[in-house]
Amino acid sequence: MRLDLSLGLILVLLAALAPVATNDYQLSFLLQLLLMVALAQSWNLISGMTGYVSFGHAVFFGVGAYTGALLLVAGHSWWAAVGWAALIATALALPIGLLTLRLHGPYFAIAMLGLNEVGRTVATLWVDLTEGGDGIALSPALLPALETNYYATLFLAVLATLAIGVVLGTRFGLELQAIREDEGAAEMVGVNTTRDKVIAFAASAVIPGAAGAVYAYYTSFIDPLSVFLPALNIQMVAMVLLGGRGTLWGPVIGVVIVMSVRELTWAEFPTLHLALLGALMILVILFLPEGILSVLRKRRGPGSTRLAEECRQQGE
């Protein structure tokens, strides 16, 4: 716990100082990296913790991007628009979660599979609101600076990671994990599974919503295909699975892997990057189902013997 905290602090400090030492291209790369951390950790909260795999989480990113862009155009300040983007995405997630989380795991996954496509279709067809396929171009005069976007993204990444850290240490996190391990047994030991799943699902939409808005300011142009992006779904799933689902640092490691693969292949073969991710995903699921982190981590911490001792005393 203390180790996690110090590691986290060092990383945040480094990230906070980065704008001083980087050019715009490098800062852009870091921004995208942090964006992925924010998204991966959000996905981790619902799918990593509970095992309810959401194949459609990009929809909340897309909704956030449109909310952020439209409100900025309508004259709101960027930070208020980011707040609204988070709120609208969450408000949308709540009814979706209430309906779909009653489905057993695999059925939930299938139901989520097309959700992003529905989002994209709506964004394309609702021309009055979204300008349809033409997309929305944001005038540079309205947009926050790159550094501002960078710090906003850093804030979201820290918030998402912190949320996982906090949840992992609480009873709520334990309940989510119990749902993943055996939902029937969890319910049989007093876990209100429906409530927990819906809360986790709604919470997992907050940061993708906000991140979508920041992303819109960062790119200054959005259209249905660029924010309801199928590749984003693939990346979220891959990042968390590769690193280790339901863990604090697994998704961060996953992001680093995914972004490295992307950097190495992006320039020449953007699709090769996704094909490689698919292959990596299969390998990890078959041979390291707990993710890459499970190789590095020792099962029993140093607290083990102390705990056993405490246990013996209690058992007297």
Binding site: R171, L174, V189, R300, L307, G315
Partner: peptide, 29 residues
């Protein structure tokens, strides 16, 4: 712990006591 009552502050102590009772202490983690 996950099976304890929510908000029960004595849950950890109770859990360790039960584990000790059936002599599973070295497996607690």
């Amino acid at each position: 712990l996950v099976a304890g009552r929510p908000g029960d502050r004595g849950a950890r102590k109770r859990a360790l006591g039960l584990i000790g009772r059936v002599k599973l202490c070295e497996h607690v983690n």
